[in-house]
Design a protein around this nucleic acid. Structure first.
Lengths: 209, 209
DNA sequence: AAATAGTTTGACCGATTGCTATGATTTTGT
DNA sequence: ACAAAATCATAGCAATCGGTCAAACTATTT
């Protein structure tokens, strides 16, 4: 009962993690079920015993990622002052990208394909972005930050934070870091935070100009 | 002689363009030679008459892209003032990303794979980035811009400009643009330019603070 | 201990993979 | 006009693709 269920759930997680790695590297079409099975340390037939099809596994992983992100990343709900909210958002997002780069890469591949499996998920993401735009607009109206295009401001924060996951290989070369050495998160987070705070006329200490 | 060579070259270009589209969508492993042939409007056997192998076609396309980028994008050689140089760089890079998104997507996929075919090309890109870092440092020393991490400043400019190619599908959803409607380049370019100019303490009109 | 349920396995399916052999067809230089 | 060269399409190669199957195996319940 409990032991069997637990083992089954663990196997599911193993398969999901392995498939995220493989899908992130080679995409849906480029990843064979054999490769996923190898990465999970099981047989191909065994894999097909646990999943119903490759496509459905892919969709399940996508659902898992979108849900995870919706829980973690929302600029909207923070009641604090703009500087704290923005700093925290960037730090959070960058740390996630650096720690779980395959998740960002998986998502990026889906979008680059034209996002054919994303239709059920757009609505939620859109609402979150619009809500955050409202918060930013209120900051502007309240004179707490300089005028900004709220939507593009968010998109650009996404762009920078995602980049360090997807382009990790390039960043490593330019920063002279071996594949096993850890990247200098502090340096990256600091520069990114400064970039977006200054855009709003803010610094870590307070408002400017 | 001339006519035959011209036709041959045109066929090569057709194949290259078609393969960029396909590789950009589904990656190296996920793209079949049949799909490339279909996209180029020829037979699979005919395709294999013009290319020696799928991998080599892929490498040739990668070489073509890297070379193209080295010619177009270099922050270094501009002798103008920082504001003009940065504005021009961002506009140039963004326009390219919006006009030829598949090229950016192709490159992004190669990097996300771990960049196994990039080793011959890193040296050149690295040198260009280091050269640009020198220029930026001289701007800082000359008091023309505020202190910046030169490397991360460049990486972040890349991040934003590339993003609008790779995440076009998502940007379209958030900006309420249909697949055939053109994106609002002006709006995107303006916000991105402001973002990076403000980071240096600049505006379109001149230095600030 | 017998019966049952859940899991793993290797063999196998038709379809597709990258790529080639070969002969037909077209284009070319003379 | 004719031979040589380049280009094309058909068919086919072994290998791999996603997925299935029944039989072997293991664990759990009675």
């Amino acid at each position: 009962m409990t032991a069997a269920e637990k083992k089954r759930r663990e196997m599911r997680e193993t398969i999901r993690d392995a498939s995220i790695r493989e899908f992130a590297r080679n995409g849906l079409a480029g990843t064979s079920t054999q490769a996923i099975a190898d990465a999970a340390g099981i047989t191909k037939a065994q894999l097909h015993y646990y999943i119903s099809s490759k496509e459905e596994l892919y969709q399940e992983v996508l659902r898992y990622i979108v849900e995870q992100w919706r829980e973690i990343f929302f600029l909207a709900a923070s009641p604090e002052d703009p500087a704290t909210a923005i700093s925290r958002y960037i730090e959070q997002k960058l740390k996630h990208a650096l720690e779980y780069p395959d998740i960002s890469r998986f998502f990026a591949r889906e979008i680059a394909r034209g996002a054919p499996e994303m239709s059920p998920h757009w609505c939620g993401l859109r609402k979150a972005v619009e809500e955050a735009s409202g918060v930013i607009n209120r900051w502007i109206e309240g004179g707490k930050i300089k005028p900004v295009d709220p939507l593009l401001f968010q998109i650009n924060m996404w762009a920078v934070t995602q980049h360090y996951a997807e382009y990790e290989a390039q960043v490593r070369v330019l920063m002279n870091k071996a594949a096993d050495a850890p990247l200098d998160d502090g340096r990256i987070i600091k520069e990114a935070t400064t970039l977006f705070l200054l855009r709003c006329g803010l610094t870590e200490e307070g408002m400017v100009s």
